[in-house]
Nucleic acid binder design. Structure first.
Length: 490
RNA sequence: CGGGGUGUAGCGUAGCCAGGUAUCGCGUCAGCAUGGGGUGCUGAAGGUCGUAGGUUCAAAUCCUGCCACUCCGACCA
């Protein structure tokens, strides 16, 4: 395998594309904007799913599944939601093909659907249409559901994982009796996302609220976690929406209170997607390839045998299996790369490219000495250690790597938050340093829009528990009560 | 939707301006050697040159249409 190697520092976006392809994560599909997630990439996604799913269940949610196709009439009920997504909806208009005179397959004009169907860009419409029939009394509440699904948004510009037309995600949809309860839910799920991002992806995130410009179509408030990538651009990694009674009103979902009054139901929705794969890649990887945090690596450690003769191979194999078993007993996932078709050097490079956190090299020399060679992917440190007590050693080391990756990303992120107090400073820092700009803003959509047009930077969020501080807007000089975070974003 | 790019073997490409039946590398297959950082040598297989039409004795090459993907912008998780 000869890889076209692109340096991160030279062309970040090309580096990213190359890495996704070379590390066997995904490739472009025949259909524009769609991707094929390859087994290795999908294995990482599955790990994310498993962990998130566990966390959702721990917080009282159950999984369910709602259909891909949504009648247009449902979709248009929540006006803002419909408007927000209208431009990117794929529409099913026919239910049949036929063979024409030229033996070509064509859409059968006689098979036009009476009502057009939308391929879900998100499922609030179909779910709230369903919730109407599920909810009558306060006893039916809360409803705490999640679904793992694919959605489609016909994007104009796509990038593998970061923005594809079809993507995989989970969407939670909950229904509550009170606004307070729904708000608690919204924030709880935001916390779940933040914890997941930091402990599993190893990506530090800032929790915040979106400005009205950036609020989800149909939501009252959108909370988000924002991460920072190595090129200084921000990435929205998850959102949790307080939907108020918007969907309940649009779909006429009411319940009877203890007191016998009819009230509209309060709602939340929250989601993270395969975009997290993009975050994972862009937050940690280097010129040698992917760097995976142990908590999400399909293999936490790879064992590469070194030998010349068949006799040596057999001896090394035996020892390698022994080590593999010992590690597996400690819940460490191990790949023993016993392919005889590739040389060790090739395997070293390949598994580095794929981001496996630790590598064991073992050969005849080691067997004599009772040692192995251990190499860390994140720091590229190599050491020779005794086989004795290897399980505990590696278990601890994996934890150390997980935290080292996080700390590295965090110190980068922390040093990339720049306080700026004038327009000159704003544009200069944005140009020269990128990252987050913490700046005063007068709170109007107009100003936000102007700044976006002038610099391409948007307000990523108003951090939660933001320090209140009197100041003046960087652009207009109007009074402001707090700083918000600007950045160029993916 | 606007601007650029690309489409030739599984992958990456040369050839196109100055038309004559396709180059090279990687990979694949076979064999021998090799094996502690992307192995070496020898041999072999593999192509309706994106697609439809036109010009020509002759088209990967020139002309026209179409399609797809990709990059850069407007839009978005």
């Amino acid at each position: 395998m000869a890889f076209e190697k692109v340096k991160r520092s030279e062309n970040y976006s090309e580096w990213y594309n190359n890495l996704v392809k070379n590390a066997d994560l995904a490739e472009h599909a025949a259909v524009k904007g769609c991707m094929i997630i390859k087994p290795y990439g999908y294995a990482i996604w599955e790990k994310m799913q498993q962990q998130l799913d566990k966390m959702f269940k721990e917080t009282g949610h159950s999984n369910a599944y709602f259909p891909l196709l949504i009648p247009k009439s449902f979709f248009e009920k929540e006006e803002k939601n419909a408007e927000g997504f209208a431009k990117e909806c794929a529409v099913v208009t026919h239910y049949r093909l036929k063979v024409d005179e030229n033996r070509k397959i064509i859409v059968d004009p006689d098979a036009k659907l009476e009502e057009e169907l939308i391929i879900r860009p998100t499922s609030e419409a179909i779910i709230w249409n369903t919730y109407r029939s599920w909810i009558q009394s306060y006893r039916d509440l809360p409803i705490l559901l999640n679904q793992w699904a694919n959605v489609m948004r016909w994007e104009m510009r796509t990038r593998l994982f970061l923005r594809t037309s079809e993507f995989l995600w989970q969407e939670g949809h909950t229904a509550h009796a009170t606004a307070e309860e729904a708000l608690v839910e919204t924030k709880q799920m935001l916390d779940v996302y933040a914890e997941f991002a930091e402990t599993f992806l190893g990506v530090p995130v800032i929790k915040g609220v979106k400005t009205s410009n950036e609020t989800f179509a149909g939501a009252v408030e959108t909370y988000c976690i924002e991460g920072l990538m190595q090129d200084g651009k921000a990435l929205q990694m998850g959102t949790s929406h307080f939907l108020g009674q918007n969907f309940a009103k649009a779909f006429d979902v009411k319940f009877q209170t203890k007191e016998g009054k009819l009230e509209y139901v309060w709602a939340t929705s929250w989601g993270v997607s395969t975009r997290l794969m993009g975050a994972l890649i862009m937050a940690h990887s280097d010129d040698e390839g992917l760097v995976l945090p142990p908590n999400l690596a399909p293999f936490q450690i790879v064992i590469i045998p070194i030998y010349k003769t068949d006799e040596e191979r057999a001896r090394v194999q035996e020892k390698a299996f022994e080590i593999k078993k010992t590690l597996e007993k400690n819940n460490i996932s191990v790949k023993f790369d016993d392919r005889d078709t590739h040389k060790p050097g090739f395997k070293f490079a390949e598994w580095e490219l794929k981001g496996v956190p630790l590598r064991i090299g073992i050969g005849p020399r080691d067997i004599e000495n009772g040692t192995i060679e251990l190499a860390r992917r994140d720091t590229k440190e190599k050491s020779v250690i005794n086989i004795e007590g290897i399980d505990i050693f590696i278990k601890n080391l994996l934890e150390e790597i997980q935290s080292a990756i996080y700390i590295k990303a965090k110190s980068f992120r922390d040093s990339s938050i720049h306080k700026v107090d004038s327009w000159d400073e704003f544009t200069k820092v944005l140009e020269e340093k990128a990252g987050f700009l913490s700046a005063h803003w007068d709170g109007t959509s107009e100003t936000e829009e102007k700044i976006k047009n002038l610099t391409k930077a948007t307000i990523r969020c108003i951090p939660l528990n933001n320090e209140q501080e009197v100041g003046t807007c960087v652009l207009t000089g109007n009074p402001s009560s707090q700083r918000v975070l600007f950045a160029k974003a993916y």
